[in-house]
Design a protein around this nucleic acid. Structure first.
Lengths: 299, 299
DNA sequence: CAGTATTTATACTGTTGGTATAATATAATG
DNA sequence: CATTATATTATACCAACAGTATAAATACTG
C-alpha cells in the first residue's frame, strides 16, 4: 500500500471520527490531507471505496491484536476471552467503529453493504471458535446460537450502561456481566436441547477463502490452539509447546519463513507419540502446505 | 392532522419502503404524491421532519394494537406477551421500520437522533413493565437488565435466523426461543443477585410526560393491569374485573367519557373490601383526575 | 363578494459527488 | 542526459440535491 494513499486514509479516518462519514465531504478530505481531487479518484473510485479500505486496515489490526493475546495462553481460559473482548471494544471506541458501521450499513451501495455483512460474519465466526475453545465439546451444537446472542447482549448492555453512567462507565463490568450471563446460558440451552441456528450456517455463508491472509491467520491460530489443548500437563512445557509456537511465529511474523525448519518440526508431530488427534495434525500440515504454495505462486 | 398532509406521509412512506430514506429525494416525494415544493415545505420544514411525523404515526398505531391484545387478558400470561412481540415484529417488517431506524439513527440531525432514542427508550419501558407483569415482584431489580438483554437477543436471533432460513423463516419460533431464554435468565440473574443497570434509569431518562396521550394510555393500561393482578381467583370474574374494563374502555375509546360513571366506579374500589393496594387505587384515581383535567382544559 | 390562506409553478442559491482535461512534476529507462 | 511513462495538480464542468424566494392561481370563509 502506497504511503501517500495510507496517509489519505488516516486523514479521512480522523475526519470521520470528528464529524461522521456522511458529513465529511470529499472536499474536506482533499483539504485535510493536502491532495488534489484527481489524486483522490486515482486512489479510490469513490468515497465508499475509501471507507472499505479504512475498514480493511482496522480489521487487520484488530484481528492481529486480538490473536496476539492468545499466544502462549490456555485458550479455554475465559479471562483471556474477556481481555480480548475488552480490547476489541477499546479499538471500536477509539476508532468510532460502531458509528461508522451503522451509519453506513443502510447505505444503498450494495458493495459496501456486502463488505460490512462479511465483517460481522467474521467476528461471529471468531466468537464461535472461541466458544468452542472455552466450552465443552458436548455444547457445540448450541454455541453458534450462544455466540449470536452474546453479541446482542453485549451490544445492548454496553449501550444502556453507557446511557446510565455516562462515557466514563466501566466497560470491564459490562463485559464481565455479559460473559457471566452467556456462560449460564450455554448450560441452560444445552440442557434444554433447543437449537435455533445450526453451526453449519457459518460454513455456508462464509466462502472458503483459505488463501486470503486473514482467514489463513485465523485458521492457523485455531489449529495451533486445538493442538496445544491436546497436550496434557506433563507435556505442556516440553518441546511440543515450543515447536507449535515456533511454527506459528515463523509463519506469521517472519519475512522469509524457513520451509525446511517448519517441515521438520511438523515431522516431529507426525512421528511423535504425543496424543494428538490425527486430523488436527493433518490440518496444520495442510495449512503450512497451502501457505508455501501461495508464497511460491506470488514469487 | 390534515388529510392531504397525511396522504403525503403515506406516499413518502411507500417510497421509503421501496428505495430507502436516503435514496428518496424530495422531488420523488413531490412527484409521487402530486404536490408542489411549496406545499411540502409548508407541511414539513425538512425531509427529517417528515420522517418524524411518519414515525409518530406508526408508533401510535403500534402501541394501540399492542395494548389491545391485552384487554381482558391475564397480563402475566406469557403467551400474550409472545403474541404482542410477534405483532410488533410484523408491523416492523411491513413498515420496514428497522431499516428506516438504523438508516437514520446516525444521521447528523440531533433532533431526529433524539426522537429515535426516545422511541427506543419507550419500547424498553414497555418491555420492562410487561416483565414486571409477568415475573414475580422479587425479580424486579433485575428486570430492566433482562429487558435490555431481551432486546439484544431477539434482534440478533432474528437477524441470523433470517440469514439462515431466508425471508420465509418462522418468526414465531425465534420469539418463542428468545422468550424461553430470557425466562431462564431472569431466574438465574436473580439468584446470582447481579445487577448492571438500576430500573430507576428509566424514570430519569424518560421525562415525565404524563399528559401526553401515549404515555397516559400506557400508564392507564399498566395501572389497570396491576389492579387486575391483585384480584384473587374468586374475585376474578366479579364486578371488579368488569368495572376495571369499563373504566379503561370509557377513558380510551369513548368520545365523551362519562365522568360521573367513572367516578362512581372508582368509589367502589376505594370503599370495597377487595385486597387492593392503596397506592394502586390512588394511582388510578390520579390518572382519571388528570385525564378529565386535560379534557376540560382543552374544551 | 371581499379577503385570507393555501397551493402552484418556477426560478434561484449553494453544495455535493463525480468527470474531464490540460499542464506540471516525478520517476523509470534507454 | 534525453525520452518516455506515470503521478499529480489545478481548474472547469456536470447533474442532482436540499432548501429558499416569489408571484400568480386557486380554494376557502365570513
Amino acid at each position: 500500500m502506497n504511503d501517500r494513499k495510507q496517509h489519505v486514509i488516516e486523514m479521512a479516518h480522523q475526519l470521520f471520527i470528528d464529524k461522521g462519514f456522511q458529513a465529511t465531504s470529499i472536499q474536506d478530505i482533499l483539504d485535510y490531507s493536502g491532495i488534489s481531487k484527481g489524486t483522490f479518484y486515482n486512489y479510490f473510485s469513490s468515497k465508499n471505496e475509501l471507507l472499505i479500505a479504512l475498514f480493511k486496515l482496522i480489521y487487520k489490526k484488530m484481528e492481529k491484536n486480538r490473536n496476539e493475546l492468545l499466544i502462549g495462553q490456555n485458550p479455554s481460559n475465559i479471562d483471556i476471552f474477556i481481555k480480548q473482548i475488552e480490547l476489541q471494544l477499546k479499538t471500536n471506541r477509539t476508532n468510532k467503529l460502531i458509528s461508522l458501521f451503522e451509519e453506513v450499513f443502510f447505505s444503498n451501495d450494495p458493495e459496501l453493504k456486502q463488505f460490512i455483512k462479511q465483517g460481522q460474519l467474521r467476528t461471529l465466526r471468531w466468537l464461535f471458535q472461541r466458544f468452542t475453545d472455552i466450552f465443552d465439546d458436548s455444547k457445540k451444537p448450541y454455541l453458534l446460537d450462544c455466540a449470536i446472542m452474546f453479541m446482542g447482549i453485549l451490544q445492548q448492555n454496553l449501550k444502556y450502561h453507557e446511557l446510565a453512567h455516562g462515557s466514563n462507565h466501566s466497560v470491564h463490568q459490562v463485559v464481565r456481566y455479559s460473559v457471566e450471563r452467556i456462560v449460564r446460558m450455554v448450560d441452560e440451552v444445552a440442557k434444554s436441547g433447543d437449537q435455533l441456528v445450526q453451526p453449519e450456517l457459518l460454513e455456508n455463508l462464509l466462502p472458503d477463502c483459505r488463501n486470503t491472509d486473514q482467514a489463513f491467520q485465523q485458521e492457523l491460530y485455531h489449529t495451533v490452539l486445538v493442538l496445544k489443548k491436546a497436550l496434557n500437563h506433563r507435556e505442556a512445557q516440553t518441546k511440543y509447546m515450543e515447536l507449535l509456537e515456533f511454527i506459528q511465529d515463523e509463519l506469521l511474523h517472519s519475512k522469509n519463513p524457513r520451509k525446511f525448519l517448519i517441515e521438520s518440526a511438523l515431522l516431529s508431530f507426525k512421528t511423535g507419540q504425543a496424543a494428538f488427534a490425527k486430523k488436527d495434525v493433518q490440518k496444520l500440515d495442510q495449512l503450512v502446505e497451502s501457505f508455501f504454495h501461495q508464497i511460491e505462486e506470488l514469487g
